[in-house]
Each structure stands twice: as C-alpha cells, then as structure tokens.
Simulated assay, not measured.
Amino acid sequence: ENGTMFSVFTRTDPDAPKAKGISCIMVHKGTPGFQVSRHLKKMGYRGIRTSELIFEDARVPLENLLGGKNEGFPMIMSALEGGRINVAARSVGLARAAFEDSVRYAQQRETFGKPLAQHQLIAAKLAEMATRIEASKLLTYQAATMKAAGKRCDLEAGMAKFMASETAEFCASEAIQVHGGMGYIQELPVERYFRDSKLLVVGEGSNEIQRLIIAKR
C-alpha cells in the first residue's frame, strides 16, 4: 500500500556546513523504528498519496547508503532539472485541459441569444489562455531537448517550470470564470484543475525560487 522501499535524505554530519552533511539512505518497509503513521489530506493532487513518516531510533545497515556519505545534496540538485521539466510538462497538460473544457463549454452555453464564445470578454480570456499555453509548451520543449542532449539547462528548466506552472494556475482560474457557477461545482473537473494547479506553482522549487535562479543567470 505504501511501497516497500523509501529513499530518505537525512543529515549524517551535523557539523558540516549547510547542505554538505546530507546523505541518501534506503529504508526498507518493516525496519524497526520506522513506520508510515498517517496519510495527509491535501488540497489537490489526491491521486498521489502523501504520508507522514516516523523514525524512532531506526537503524539501517551501511550497505543501504546510496552514493557516498554526505553526498546526498548533489544528488538532489542533479534531479532538479528533470524534475522541473516534468512539472512544466504536467502544467502544460493541466492548462490545456482547462482551456479545452472552457472552449467546449463556451461554444455550448448560450447567453443573451448567442454562445459564450461570441462574447468579447470570454473570447479574450480564451485567446490569452491559448497564447500562454503555447509559450509554455515551447519553453518546455526547449528545456527537454537540452536535457536529452546532455546539456546544462537549469536556467531553461527554471523558466519552463515558472512559466508553465503560472500558466496552469492562470488557466485553471480563468476556466472557473468561463464556466461561472458551474465551475465551482464538483460535478465538473474545472474545480479540480484549480486545486491541482497550486502544487505545480510550489513544487520542485517554488516560483519565487525560480525567479531568483533566472535573475542570477
């Protein structure tokens, strides 16, 4: 139910400066002193379980050390480029879903004798959603292409993650506006897009961090 192996990043040298004393240790399910205590209730992304882990004098053999001792932080950093590209891609997908649902609803729903899509304010919302999605997609493709070629892409990955996740949040919010009151009802997936989009903005380094990375480069 909760997996059989857990990768845990923990401080193994309390006297080391900043992040240099962190190691990655593999912990098996059933290890004495280790347990999954409870599943956390989240605003969104409920399809992925998030649980609280408790360690009480849990001991693991030295062979469970993944990589070298105190070398965990570089492992974390090496995964961030791919992780941020992953978030960017998921953000584009969420934004497209919100956009496509909005287009479909705006074409079907009629007010004042014509479809919503023919009202200028609604049409403008759809146009901006489409433009932001396309820009986010291109940034994501660029970062993914560089990553696949083995090139450094921390800047491009940060830009893609920043732009795409902001776009996902924007499109999810605008989708609710297009749907009106129905967008707030759980019968439609629009409210879920809105809840799920927030994790994309804060996950894999918040967008405040992405701004700092971009500014420093």
Rank of each mutant, 00 (worst) to 15 (best):
K41C: 02
Y193H: 15
G83Q: 02
T140P: 05
A130H: 03
R217D: 06
M146D: 08
E156T: 01
L66N: 11
R192E: 11
I122R: 03
T140N: 09
K42S: 13
T4R: 14
K114E: 13
E174A: 07
M163F: 11
Y184R: 07
M77V: 14
E52Q: 14
R84T: 05
R152I: 07
D196R: 03
V178E: 04
E187F: 08
S37F: 07
L139C: 12
L200Q: 02
N2T: 10
R11F: 04
R217G: 14
F112R: 15
F9R: 11
S102H: 08
T167V: 08
D154V: 09
F55N: 09
L139Q: 10
E208G: 11
A123C: 01
G21K: 06
S136E: 00
L65G: 07
A215L: 14
N70I: 01
R192I: 11
V60W: 06
I133Q: 05
R46E: 15
S102V: 10
A19W: 08
L199K: 09
F99H: 14
E81A: 14
G181M: 06
P74K: 05
A135H: 07
A98V: 04
S197C: 03
A157M: 04
Q118W: 08
M75Y: 10
F9Q: 12
A160R: 01
G203S: 12
